[in-house]
């Protein structure tokens, strides 16, 4: 039935946005994770990309997480000679996580998640109205 398909597609959308939120919080949590060894690489931010896939069981384009790729961007150099990861000149590489960009990404994921929830609400209303035809 079409309306149940619609629910399944929305659930897939919510799952994908949920993964995106998870990665964003991973980035935020690791905003200060430096390397342990001198001159090592710190945490590199991750980016989620989506792709639409044909779900053959429901015959519609569903969505799933394509891949979680490392994000580009320069590491910031901070002067801290006493840090275990400091290089010969006393600089430590900091993760390329920009908290403001992450927060924006989080807000966008939240909006999309909400939109999927609203679509589920509409489909549920339509289903219950159809069932009410019996009464």
């Amino acid at each position: 039935m079409d309306l149940e398909q619609s629910l399944q597609i929305s659930f897939a959308g919510m799952a994908a946005q949920g993964t995106r939120l998870r990665v964003v919080s991973e980035n935020l949590a690791n905003a200060d994770s430096t390397a342990q060894t001198p001159g090592g690489e710190p945490y590199r931010r991750k980016v989620v990309t989506f792709k639409s896939v044909l779900d053959k069981s429901i015959g519609a384009m569903s969505v799933k997480v394509d891949r979680i790729a490392p994000g580009s961007g320069e590491f910031e150099r901070r002067y801290d000679p006493s840090h275990p990861a400091a290089d010969a000149e006393g600089y430590v590489l900091m993760p390329n996580v920009n908290p403001i960009a992450e927060l924006l990404d989080m807000r966008e994921a939240q909006h999309s998640y909400q939109a999927n929830l609203d679509a589920i609400d509409a489909a549920k209303q339509m289903i219950s109205r159809t069932i009410n035809l019996l009464s």
């Binding site: 079409d2 959308g13 995106r20 989506f50 429901i58 384009m61 969505v63 999309s112 679509a119 339509m126």
Partner: peptide, 18 residues
Amino acid sequence: LGERQSVLAQNIANADTP
């Protein structure tokens, strides 16, 4: 209307798909 609902849900699920 049912089919349209599922197509619109598909659009929303793919709101961030390149």
